[in-house]
Design a protein around this nucleic acid. Structure first.
Lengths: 206, 206, 206, 206
DNA sequence: AATGAATGAGGATTCATTCAT
DNA sequence: GATGAATGAATCCTCATTCAT
């Protein structure tokens, strides 16, 4: 339901495919907001409600709660991959994008803890896969002489460490702490910002 | 109304008030285990069950779930304080004890994230208080020239960072990662171990 | 209770019987307060706590919750009986004492509803017995020509009606309404007050 | 709750919705019965059980226990209002309908005690609102010279008095006592019956 | 495909009652 | 006799998940 502001949508009897895609996107967006506000344990009903769809639709698109979380985090990871795929990418820049997402989303932090989140939230191998993609994106630009290139695990341990430092009620404070964390690690980081200017807008729905 | 089923049958023995202290200790111990396995959001009923007591006993000893968590974490913090109070204490040694507890207890990690725990578990100012005690214990031995002594927040940010790195299914792996984290921070840490061999005994309550 | 406790007890260390009597009185007093504040469904533990005794003591003196209530109300009824036994007693005077108790105690009101209370609070035939004693005390002074003497049930119906009217947060308001109720019934009532000046003081305990 | 979806019946009826309406009615009916038997403090689970639905259904339809009670009592009050709105209504007739409901429902009695209900059941201002509606319905037909028109509060005090008198295990006995109460008040009352012949029957649940 | 109602298990919390000391 | 701890049933309330329409 939820009157859609899209002008071309005037007929609820419009064919399903398009509606389905829109619903899926609405669910992912709603989940992102809900996760940001309440964490990964938030009730699924809240996500469906904020997306403006019935509970059943959520289950049609996502088999379980882990799938929802994965879909949300997938977008974050994709941005990092895109940042890594940019022509002028370097490790500092990619770390900056990564850090931005760390400061943005409590859920995203969890996934980088790999099993910290897995315990409670039932995000199983999904998390490992996402974490692996992040690692590949970073490592593609990791020079041999880089501070995090000596030991095999250092790169992702450092990422996890920054995740640990990123706490606080406001994004600004979280960013300040993230920057301090990288400084303590003696690692140079580019500007902390999303990859594109594709602002993922948060409609103050509901 | 009181429809009581006339418990003329044997009733599970009431061992008297002597057992109260033992029960409290059992609850704290059970809570420690349960928290380590499932995190601070674990059901209180699981704690009572593992302690081998009824639900009511838990509520007799602890008014709310925050009180349970506090009782558990309080012991960890106390060990760190004791380590700091030892005659030959230095910052590396205290950090070693701290790190041991970080590798030991998922719950303890949460509390050092300061607000990471606050979110769901309703451990609000408790966490801040415990975290403050840890900070004081550490700062008492922080030399002026120490790597973590330049910026005001660096000390606890570093602690949070190590907490972030401490993941993995086994304590050994978590310790390995913790050590790697301190190395990346270029901070010297003493042996990772509990303060004393003081078996976590029964506090002489009552 | 057979033993008359002389008020001038000089030996507080004289245990046993005397302590038991004091505890019983404390329980009744506490129950009166608790009932006035929370109604007849208040937890028994609250009564024991306010009386400053253990839970077990309550069960030693009273087999069930109805016995507690009865003990409390018994005192109210006794005052009414004493008022009726006074040399210069008349129906108006006894009604005044009765009304005072109605305005004083929500519990007492319930008992005069006879079965309204019985339903929930498990005050079974106790209530009937108490109600019967009140009726006898009143009827002893009911002149043949009295407004409430025509029909058999009129007397106690009128009492129940006044009980129904007695609502409100303060005793003053309840008294005002009680007086209005008697006026509507066209029944003359003496001064609304306890029988003796034996103020049953309410220590603001706890 | 209750987004007012315009109940235009153009669409092929969604039967899920139809069941919902039936369930809601069943819940209200069950609540009425349970309240009559056990009073307003009856467990909500008993209501759900008698309605033949799960607990969750009750919470879907009513956010809290006060909402359930309000839904039930609202119907009673509505009947009284309808009786007052009838073309040939007079005060005696409306009082008769009111009295019928008093004899019918212990819960309804509570609400007219105004604060008697407020105590335990958490039906605070709801009760006041319902009581106010009853008063308005009555007062609309109260002639200036009526016995209950002299003092401002007399009307509702009288209603409360009758409520107080209405006790007893059977409706018949309660009615007899109610009639006696009105007689003692010297107030003429019409036939004690529900407003319409609209028997509030048992919804053909399952 | 969407809807949103229903189910029912799970967890929190409160108390009446018993009983060892 | 008193104490107060323990038990465990009962109730409240929340969601994850299924399913009829």
């Amino acid at each position: 339901m939820t009157r859609q502001s899209t002008p071309d949508e005037r007929r609820p009897a419009n064919d399903g495919r398009r509606v389905a895609a829109r619903n899926r996107a609405a669910l992912v967006g709603a989940a992102r907001e809900i996760y940001a506000e309440y964490g990964l344990d938030a009730p699924l009903s809240a996500i469906a409600r904020r997306a403006g769809v019935g509970q059943g639709v959520l289950y049609r698109h996502f088999p379980d709660r882990a799938a929802v979380a994965t879909a949300v985090l997938d977008e974050n990871v994709r941005q990092i991959e895109q940042a890594a795929a940019a022509p002028d990418a370097d490790i500092a820049g990619v770390l900056g994008v990564l850090t931005w997402h760390q400061t943005q989303s409590a859920a995203f932090i969890s996934v980088l803890h790999i099993d910290g989140a897995a315990g409670r939230s039932g995000i199983p191998e999904y998390a490992a896969a996402l974490s692996g993609r992040v690692e590949r994106a970073l490592r593609a630009h990791l020079p041999d002489g880089h501070r995090l290139a000596t030991e095999k695990d250092d790169l992702m341990i450092a990422v996890a460490m920054v995740s640990g430092a990123v706490t606080g009620p406001t994004r600004e404070q979280r960013e300040r702490r993230a920057v301090a964390a990288w400084r303590l690690l003696d690692v140079e980081v580019g500007p902390v910002r999303p990859f594109d200017d594709e602002q993922r807008g948060q409609p103050p729905l509901d």
